[in-house]
């Protein structure tokens, strides 16, 4: 413990501890974040509870939320129709809090159409549904290339798209947040919703790859 700074100086009790770095090794910007927090608390601009609530909220957001939406849409055509017509209402129905989203659009992949989501200007992402975006989604290379070379990018992530399938890229530049509804993998007819959820990866809901294939039963 000697090289790790006391939790009380750092994130407060109950928060994650940073075991990577002793405090004096924190970077210039990391130190400034702690200083900003301290000053905002001192001035009463925000409270530790406000911060903790946000951390808890973000930690509770994960691709599992999106996977629940997708898996249910695969097995229930009526739910799929509702999810596409009014995604926020469909989230509410599933107990997924999407209220902080301005607007939410679901893009359905088909045999003939594949969607891919990017934000070329910053990092817009359906955080209430999928959690924080992955590093690659925020990278300059993805932001640059996804619009001009989506097929090349998808190939780079391991899955090329056949020439007779249309690729549609969505650049989220405004208040809309986009979620891809991947196609249900073949051979999953007998699977339960819970089993199907495991096939719905975060990356498949960004559209960069398909949902995972069904594991062939032996």
């Amino acid at each position: 413990m000697s090289d790790v700074h006391p939790v009380s100086n750092h994130l407060k009790a109950g928060e994650q501890q940073d075991h990577e770095h002793p405090r004096h090794e924190l970077s210039y910007h990391a130190k400034r974040v702690y200083a900003i927090r301290e000053l905002l608390l001192e001035k009463g601009v925000l409270t530790q509870e406000d911060i903790q609530r946000q951390i808890d909220y973000q930690e509770a957001r994960s691709p599992a939320n999106g996977a629940r939406l997708v898996a249910r849409a695969w097995v229930e055509p009526d739910f799929k129709a509702r999810l596409i017509a009014d995604p926020k209402a469909a989230c509410a129905e599933m107990g997924i809090d999407a209220t902080s989203l301005n607007e939410f659009v679901v893009l359905e992949n088909t045999e003939k159409v594949r969607y891919l989501v990017v934000c070329t200007l910053c990092s817009c992402y359906p955080r209430p549904i999928l959690g924080r975006p992955p590093d690659w989604y925020k990278s300059l290379n993805y932001r640059s290339r996804a619009v001009i070379d989506p097929r090349g990018v998808m190939r780079e992530f391991g899955q090329g798209v056949a020439d007779d399938v249309e690729v549609r890229v969505h650049d989220s530049t405004a208040d809309m947040r986009y979620l891809v509804l991947p196609q249900r993998p073949a051979g999953t007819e007998g699977m339960s919703v819970k089993e199907l959820e495991k096939l719905v990866t975060r990356d498949s809901m960004i559209g960069i790859v398909d949902a995972l294939p069904a594991v062939p039963s032996l």
Binding site: P134, W136, V153
Partner: peptide
């Protein structure tokens, strides 16, 4: 968007450090 010269996409994902989680939350 479409800027020339962009290379391969680094698919490595890093675990957020405490200060990053804090910056996000604040």
């Amino acid at each position: 968007g479409g800027e020339s010269g962009a290379g391969p996409i680094d698919q490595t994902e890093h675990q957020l450090s405490d200060w990053e989680i804090l910056a996000d939350a604040i």
